Lab assay of single mutants.
Amino acid sequence: VTLFVALYDYEARTEDDLSFHKGEKFQILNSSEGDWWEARSLTTGETGYIPSNYAAPV
Rank of each mutant, 00 (worst) to 15 (best):
V1E: 14
V1C: 15
V1H: 13
V1L: 14
T2G: 12
T2K: 12
T2I: 14
T2A: 11
L3G: 04
L3Y: 13
L3F: 12
F4D: 01
F4R: 04
F4S: 04
F4V: 12
V5H: 05
V5Q: 08
V5L: 07
V5K: 04
A6H: 01
A6L: 03
A6S: 04
A6F: 01
A6I: 03
L7G: 02
L7I: 09
L7F: 04
L7P: 02
Y8L: 08
Y8G: 05
Y8I: 07
Y8R: 07
D9H: 05
D9S: 07
D9G: 06
Y10H: 06
E11K: 10
E11Q: 12
E11F: 09
E11R: 08
E11V: 14
A12W: 02
A12N: 05
A12F: 02
A12Y: 02
A12S: 10
R13F: 08
T14W: 13
T14R: 14
T14K: 13
E15N: 13
E15L: 12
D16F: 15
D16Y: 15
D17Y: 14
D17P: 01
D17Q: 15
D17W: 12
L18R: 01
L18M: 14
S19K: 04
S19P: 05
S19T: 09
S19Y: 03
S19C: 04
F20V: 04
F20K: 00
F20I: 05
F20G: 09
H21C: 14
H21T: 12
H21F: 12
H21G: 07
H21S: 13
H21Y: 11
K22M: 08
K22D: 01
K22Q: 09
K22A: 12
G23Q: 01
E24V: 03
E24P: 01
E24W: 06
E24T: 07
E24S: 04
E24G: 01
K25V: 15
K25C: 14
K25N: 07
K25I: 15
K25A: 07
F26R: 00
F26D: 00
F26A: 00
F26W: 02
F26H: 00
F26Q: 00
F26E: 00
F26P: 00
Q27K: 07
Q27P: 00
Q27V: 15
Q27I: 15
Q27L: 14
Q27D: 08
I28G: 00
I28H: 00
I28C: 04
L29K: 05
L29N: 05
N30K: 09
S31L: 13
S31F: 15
S31P: 12
S31Y: 13
S31E: 09
S32M: 13
S32L: 12
S32I: 12
E33V: 11
E33L: 14
G34T: 11
G34H: 10
D35T: 10
D35G: 12
D35W: 08
D35R: 08
D35M: 10
D35H: 09
D35E: 13
W36P: 04
W36K: 12
W36Y: 12
W37A: 03
W37T: 03
W37V: 07
E38I: 15
E38K: 13
E38H: 14
E38G: 04
E38T: 11
A39E: 00
A39C: 04
A39T: 03
R40P: 01
S41R: 13
S41N: 13
S41V: 06
L42A: 05
L42V: 09
L42K: 03
L42F: 06
L42E: 07
L42I: 10
L42Y: 06
T43M: 10
T43R: 13
T43P: 02
T43C: 14
T44Q: 02
T44H: 03
T44F: 02
T44R: 04
T44L: 01
G45S: 05
G45A: 04
G45Y: 06
G45K: 04
T47G: 03
T47N: 05
T47R: 11
T47Q: 09
T47K: 10
G48N: 00
G48H: 02
G48M: 03
Y49C: 12
Y49H: 08
Y49S: 06
I50R: 00
I50H: 00
I50E: 00
P51D: 05
P51V: 02
P51T: 02
P51R: 06
P51E: 02
P51W: 06
S52Y: 10
S52Q: 08
S52D: 03
S52N: 07
N53P: 06
N53Y: 12
N53R: 11
N53S: 13
N53H: 13
N53E: 10
Y54R: 05
Y54S: 15
Y54E: 02
Y54M: 10
Y54W: 08
A55G: 06
A55C: 15
A55E: 02
A55H: 04
A55S: 06
A56F: 08
A56Y: 09
A56W: 08
A56N: 06
P57S: 06
P57C: 07
P57N: 05
V58K: 04
V58T: 08
V58M: 11
V58L: 13
V58N: 06
